[in-house]
Write a protein that binds this DNA or RNA. Structure first.
Length: 1069
RNA sequence: GGGCCGGUAGCUCAGUUUGGUUAGAGCACACGGCUGAUAACCGUGCGGUCGGGAGUCCAAAUCUCCUCCGGCCCA
């Protein structure tokens, strides 16, 4: 027996029920089992950082993953879908710091202790990991969670080490300087993210300094700076190669600066008399040497004698918005300075230590805090006559977000993976990768790759994979550890039960192979992007057993948000090429970002974040998924708006109601889908049935193609349109009457077979998008009848489109019929004719031949839906005989052509029967008129105007395909039928209000006031009795005798009061 | 400053690859209708300088150039 889908659609309720059922019956495991041995589809899960909660943006990416994986599974693949979690990194540390009420690395070491701190990080990760797994499962994302990989696990870290050792063998692991923003008080470096949140307005010195040009008397290059303390570290002056520079004569001196800035600088320096003596492009200055302005104060500078040390160099980064266009360059104190310094092989001279004090290399300033040195340096410059002006400036400068200390940029030793030698391979591999959308790979990612520099992989933090590098304290010998085995075998001291994290790993000491001294670990941890970047192999036990690697690598598919261009997409391809010389992924779906309803980025500080758990509780996982997938292309940004999810819920409700309708009647009629397949009842299929079957197959075809192309929104949109337009709006409405027929009528059986076929197909293609509701409906419609059917819709086979069922002509004809029906409704509305009132005749005047064929083929549907008795199909361009057609000239067009002949032509053409002219014009494209002087005039359609004069009983409307005339004459028979339908409708409302079963019989009495009404109703008594399911039907003029079970209601119909009384026959149980 | 994405009705989006009839949907709003699957649904109406400017072309939302606004990434 068909299980009936009842009640209104309650997504949350359905999902609770289904997920319980899934768990109890181990459906996920069974699904996985059932695909063992099939062709593999290899998916690599990008591990979410398990820090913080899952928001709807995360849910979006996870919904996309799930759609693809479920689809591929149903399509017959054995899908590799191991879950993974990114556990380490700064965000976890920051949250733990907050928990302890501290805010710097220094405090971790001094107040908490590394061990306690790391243990707390582990606990926090446990907490969030649990949250993420629960919410992912609630969302319906089916991954293999039990075997999930975690970047904090021993085996995982071991692989990261192995990868670094491989990189080292290839000469790609190096130590180098990097300029990083640093808080001198917390003694820690800050990430760019941290820097961004600490900008504030502050007052700093603003000084102009003259740098004497070597070998020239009184010639200077003029620079401007707000950080005098960086002058001891100055190594060069940068100028823009393509901007013009000038030599300006001031008093007895020559100054060099950018042409464009001369006026402004002179004004600022209060120099009134000057003369520009030369103008030339900056490039010409390259290599010009100057004397370091603090050479005497900072003796270490005199050792810098390279080709470009203390020289003018060229840099595209030089702007002409402030200063002099000549930029003092200290490679150790600015990222841009550092970059250009490397290009010109300048020394990375950093006379400042991590706490912001000058070291002994700072000469005269040794021991001074940088900010305190500013005034001393200014005074020294003044003394030497090199200072042009010292004032102050208000500007934006970054401060430490924790302690509000101004940040300083310092060069620091860090570890890098070198990119140069592998870049070509990475670019090649990226070209071979399939990106959706294409531009994400071919433009955006390629641009990033082409411009990427060496990857700084070291972090001066605690909670991360430790850098596996040990350095000899004496001779500087370097030892990179690649495996645990190597560690345990070769270490000189090894703590018991070694945890690979800090602080335990820091206790491991090696003996130097060269000099025998102790080797200690370099106290860095690794960038967490390196952790996730090796997920391609670290997640599958590569070091222990390569079998999985051999079948999985490279993976078929990954999908993450567009911001992973610089993150995971990059770290994957980088490590893949380094280790295995190819990219770990073949295809990428790039996801857009999730914004709030106003298009603003969601952020905690704005307070506009929508958590996934909240959304799922509020609207349910299915509606959330469908909404997210439906609203925009996967790669476009999406503004999340709760109000809009209502629409999606309504659509799913329609689906639910369709099933409610279908299962109710199928159950009532004991329809058995297994006995009655389409093939068996083929000859009873009506055109609308064949149409629905055709539409269903077309839909399957489109959805499959869109899923293959990863146009997920197109796929779900097509499904939703089919459900609302084709099924609900059209087919169900059309076949409703056929389901009311008693007994096992083949015409009704055809409806059921058709509906069953279509609905069971829809469920399967909807399953990846809305897994819960699809399951619930599948269990009711399919599984309740067929114990041989797959246990779950997610174990069912993806439908293959049956081309032989697709009838393009039928679909096109039906579209034409619908177009015409719209016009009928328009006409009815104009004539104030309710659709419930039948009309006698409908004339169709097709404008194209195909319309005629469509109407002929689907005449019955057309009449039925239009509620008309007879249909007259006219020839193309023909007009019903009762319509008078008048023809006249289009004077605007005809005037210039015929000029003085116009009056005659006009009077002649008016006398002709317009119908004849119109038909002639329609057939031949022209009409010939003979004038009194025998001249023959050719009239083309654009010269003529036709005016139809409709008789009172006709109303007309026109579409691009046809013209429709409706005969609205109301005969007594039509009036009787109209009245019957009015009464019927009200009786049906009453039945519903009485909560009668659909097929329950009743007694009915109808009281009318007018004799005429009584007579009219008598003529349709049988019709009424059948439709209301009245065992006894009486139509009276006297008062009704009421029994206790009777339900009575008075109605106003066309100004007359009609009382309907319905009596229940069966007792209520 | 560079790269990429987007800008179409009050709102959310199609359409742009490949130029071609009157630029389409849904929501919202107004009016009307339908209803024994329906807290549903249907019709009609209202609503458009296709961000702006210039160009190419018989023809531009669509191609080219410039420009403005928003977003992401990089400097």
């Amino acid at each position: 027996m068909m299980k009936v889908v009842g009640g209104p659609y309650d997504s949350v309720e359905v999902e609770k029920k289904v997920s319980l059922w899934w768990n109890q019956n181990r459906i996920f495991q069974k699904m996985v089992e059932s695909k063992k041995g099939a062709e593999l589809f290899r998916f690599l899960e990008g591990p979410p950082t398990v820090n913080g909660f899952m928001h709807v943006g995360h849910a979006r990416g996870r919904a996309m993953k799930d759609v693809v994986l479920r689809y591929k599974t149903m399509a017959g693949y054995d899908v590799w879908r191991r879950a993974g979690w990114d556990c380490q990194g700064l965000p976890v540390e920051l949250e733990v710091e907050k928990k302890f009420g501290i805010s710097s690395k220094k405090e971790i070491e001094e107040k908490i202790g590394l061990q306690k701190f790391v243990e707390e990080c582990q606990k926090l990760v446990d907490f969030y990991l649990n949250h993420w797994r629960n919410n992912s499962e609630r969302l319906g994302l089916w991954l293999d969670y039990d075997l999930a990989y975690e970047t904090r696990k021993r085996d995982y870290i071991e692989f990261v080490w192995w990868a670094l050792k491989e990189a080292d063998k290839k000469g790609l692991l190096t130590e180098d300087f990097k300029v990083v923003p640093r808080c001198p008080r917390c003694e820690t470096s800050l990430s760019s993210h941290e820097v961004a949140q600490g900008y504030a307005t502050t007052t700093d010195p603003s000084i102009y300094v003259k740098f004497p040009i070597q070998g020239k008397e009184n010639e200077f290059i003029i620079i401007w700076t707000t950080t005098p303390w960086t002058l001891p570290g100055d190594e060069a002056v940068s100028i823009h190669p393509r901007n013009n520079y000038t030599k300006v004569s001031v008093r007895n001196e020559v100054w060099i600066l950018a042409e464009q800035l001369v006026e402004r600088v002179m004004k600022d320096l209060k120099v009134n008399q000057y003369k520009v003596i030369d103008v030339f492009p900056g490039k010409k200055l390259e290599g010009t040497k100057y004397i370091h302005p603090l050479l005497e104060e900072v003796p270490a500078q005199s050792e810098h004698k390279g080709k470009f040390d203390h020289a003018i160099i060229c840099g595209e980064h030089v702007t002409l918005e402030e200063g002099t266009g000549c930029v003092h360059t200290a490679p150790a104190h600015g990222p841009e300075d550092f970059e250009i310094g490397k290009k010109y092989s300048l020394p990375i001279f950093c006379p400042v230590s991590g706490d912001g004090h000058f070291t002994s290399e700072g000469g005269k300033y040794a021991g001074l805090f940088v900010k305190e040195s500013d005034s001393k340096i200014i005074a020294d410059l003044e003394k030497k006559g090199l200072l042009l002006k010292a004032s102050t400036l208000e500007h934006e400068y970054p401060f430490c977000w924790r302690c509000n200390t101004p940040l300083i940029y310092l060069a620091d030793k860090q570890w890098f993976l070198k990119v140069e030698s592998v870049k070509k391979r990475i670019l090649e591999e990226n070209k071979a990768t399939s990106w959706v959308p294409d531009w994400a790979g071919s433009s955006r990612f390629e641009d990033w790759l082409a411009n990427s520099g060496d990857w700084c992989i070291s972090r001066s933090r605690v909670w991360g994979s430790p850098l596996p590098v040990w350095i000899c304290q004496k001779c500087g010998n370097k030892h990179v550890v690649g495996t645990l085995k190597e560690l345990t075998k070769e270490a000189k001291t090894l703590p018991e039960n070694l945890d690979l994290h800090r602080p335990w790993i820091d206790e491991v000491v090696f003996k130097c192979g060269k000099c025998g001294e102790d080797m200690r670990r370099v106290e860095y941890v690794l960038d967490c992007w390196l952790d996730s970047g090796v997920a391609h192999s670290a997640s599958i036990d590569y070091l222990k057993d390569k079998r999985l690697f051999e079948i999985l690598y490279p993976y078929d598919f990954i999908t993450e948000a567009i911001d992973q261009t610089r993150g995971w997409f990059y770290s994957l391809v980088f490590t893949g090429v380094i280790l295995f010389d190819n990219s770990p992924y073949k295809r990428v779906l790039c996801q857009g970002l999730m914004l709030d309803r106003y298009g603003q980025k969601m952020s905690k500080s704005k307070g506009n974040v929508i958590w996934a758990s909240e959304a799922m509780e509020k609207i349910g996982a299915d509606p959330l998924r469908v909404y997210i997938l439906w609203k925009s292309s996967p790669w476009d940004s999406l503004s999340f708006d709760y109000d809009e999810t209502e629409q999606v819920k309504r659509w799913l409700s329609i689906l639910w109601n369709i099933f409610s309708f279908a299962t109710t009647y199928m159950n009532l009629d004991e329809f058995n889908p297994n006995e009655l397949q389409i093939e068996k009842i083929k000859e009873h299929l009506r055109p609308e049935d064949r149409w629905l079957l055709s539409r269903t197959q077309s839909l399957v075809k489109n959805v499959t193609a869109n899923l293959d192309a990863l146009y997920l929104n197109q796929a779900i949109r097509d499904i939703l349109t089919f459900i609302t337009e084709d099924l609900s709006r059209f087919y169900i409405r059309l076949i409703r009457r056929r389901t009311w027929v008693e007994k096992k009528d083949p015409d009704k059986q055809a409806v059921y077979a058709t509906l069953y076929e279509s609905l069971s197909t829809i469920l399967r293609i909807l399953a990846p998008f809305a897994p819960y509701v699809s399951e619930e409906l599948y269990q009711a419609l399919v599984r309740s009848n067929d114990s041989n059917a797959p246990e779950s819709v997610h174990m069912a086979v993806w439908p293959r489109a049956k081309d032989e069922w697709i009838d393009d002509e039928l679909e096109a004809n039906m579209a034409l019929i619908n177009d015409m029906l719209e016009k009928v409704y328009t006409s009815r509305q104009r004539a104030k004719l309710k659709l419930r009132w039948p009309v006698q005749t409908l004339y169709v005047s097709p404008l194209e031949e195909k319309v005629k064929r469509a109407v002929e083929a689907l005449k019955e549907i057309f009449l039925d839906q239009a509620n008309a008795k007879t249909l007259e199909i006219l020839e193309a361009g023909e007009i019903p005989t009762s319509v008078n057609v008048r023809v006249d000239l289009n004077f605007q067009e005809a005037g210039p052509q015929f000029k003085e002949k116009i009056p005659e032509i006009s009077s002649l053409i008016r006398k002709v029967d317009g119908r004849v002219v119109k038909q002639e014009v329609f057939k031949n494209g022209k009409y010939f008129l003979t004038l009194r002087n025998k001249e023959i005039v050719e009239l083309s359609p654009n010269l003529l105007v036709f005016k139809e004069e409709l008789p009172e009983n006709l109303t007309a409307s026109e579409s691009s395909y046809s013209k429709i005339y409706l005969d609205i004459t109301r005969t007594p028979e039509l009036l009787a039928e109209s009245l019957a339908k009015e009464v019927l409708r009200r009786a049906q409302i009453m039945r519903k209000e009485m909560n009668l079963k659909v097929d329950e019989y009743v007694d009915v009495a109808i009281k009318v006031l007018e004799d005429e009404t009584l007579g009219t109703l008598q003529t349709v008594k049988n019709f009424l009795a059948t439709e209301i399911r009245a065992q006894k039907l009486s139509i009276l003029q006297k008062d009704l005798e009421l029994s206790g079970e009777a339900y009575v209601k008075e109605w106003e119909i066309d100004g007359e009061t009609i009382t309907i009384c319905i009596t229940r026959l069966n007792k209520i149980d």
